[in-house]
Simulated assay, not measured.
Amino acid sequence: MTDMSASFVYVTYIRTTPDKVFEAITRPEIACRYWGHENISDDWQPGSEWRHVRTNPARSVDLVGKVLESDPPRRLVLSWANESQQDDPAQFSRVIFDIDQQDRMVRLTVTHEDLQPGSGMLKGITEGWPLVLSSMKSLLETGQGMDL
C-alpha cells in the first residue's frame, strides 16, 4: 500500500467576498487571469468531472478529477490527479477550498491532502499553491494577477 499521508495547507486573507473567491476558482475566464489555466466543469456539482486546462494555444489538460463537495461560496472539494495518471486511483489526491468571511475580508484555506511523501506532486503543489494563491489575491484586490 502506498503511503499517502502527506498534506499541504495554505491560508491567505483576501479583501473581497466569498462569492468572488468561489468564482475565481470555478469560472474559467477568471482563473486564467491569475493561474494561466482554466478550471472547467459542467456544473461544479458533486460527481461532476473537472479539468485544469492550459490557456496556451495547445489547450492541453494538465489535471483532472471530480467534484466531491460543493457548497458555494463556502467550500469546494475536488479529487486531483495528473491527466497522465488518471487511470490509477492511487494517484488521486484531494483539494479542499474553505472560504470564510472574516469581517471585510475572506480567509481562504487550501488543504491539499492524500499526497505521497517525497512525490513529484507534493513538490509541485508545495511550490505552486503559494504562487497561484498569491496571484489570485493580487487579481481580486487589484485587478491584476501575477505572471506565472
Rank of each mutant, 00 (worst) to 15 (best):
M1R: 07
D3V: 00
D3K: 01
S5H: 03
A6E: 15
S7W: 00
S7L: 10
F8Y: 14
F8N: 00
Y10A: 05
V11Y: 01
V11T: 15
T12R: 03
Y13I: 05
Y13M: 08
I14S: 01
I14P: 05
R15G: 09
T16Y: 05
T16W: 03
T16S: 15
T17A: 13
T17I: 11
P18T: 08
D19T: 11
D19M: 04
K20D: 13
K20Y: 00
F22D: 09
F22C: 09
E23I: 04
E23T: 02
E23A: 15
A24S: 15
P28V: 11
P28H: 11
P28A: 13
E29K: 10
A31I: 00
A31G: 05
C32M: 14
C32S: 12
C32V: 15
G36A: 04
H37Q: 07
E38Y: 01
I40L: 14
D42I: 08
D42S: 14
D42M: 04
D42V: 09
W44L: 07
W44Y: 01
W44P: 02
W44I: 03
W44V: 03
Q45E: 09
Q45K: 08
Q45A: 12
P46Q: 08
G47P: 09
G47K: 00
S48A: 15
S48I: 08
E49M: 01
E49D: 13
W50L: 14
R51M: 13
R51S: 11
H52L: 04
V53E: 12
V53C: 08
R54M: 12
T55I: 15
T55W: 07
A58V: 11
S60Y: 06
V61M: 02
D62P: 00
L63N: 09
G65P: 06
V67Y: 11
V67P: 14
V67G: 12
L68F: 07
L68N: 03
E69H: 12
S70A: 15
D71I: 06
D71A: 12
P73K: 05
R75I: 11
L78Q: 11
L78H: 07
S79H: 10
W80T: 06
A81M: 11
S84F: 14
Q85M: 14
D87V: 14
D87M: 12
P89W: 03
Q91A: 13
F92M: 01
F92H: 02
F92L: 04
F92A: 10
R94C: 14
F97S: 00
D98H: 00
I99M: 05
D100N: 10
Q101A: 15
Q102M: 06
R104T: 11
R104Q: 13
M105V: 08
M105N: 13
V106C: 07
V106Q: 01
R107T: 03
L108D: 09
T109F: 04
T109L: 07
T109H: 05
V110R: 04
V110M: 08
T111G: 04
H112N: 06
E113C: 09
D114K: 04
L115C: 01
Q116H: 08
S119I: 06
M121N: 05
M121A: 07
K123F: 03
G124C: 05
G124T: 04
I125H: 02
T126L: 02
V132H: 11
S134K: 13
S134P: 05
S134A: 15
S135K: 00
M136R: 03
K137H: 10
K137L: 08
S138V: 02
S138W: 02
L140T: 04
E141K: 01
E141W: 00
G145V: 02
M146Q: 07
M146C: 00
L148T: 14
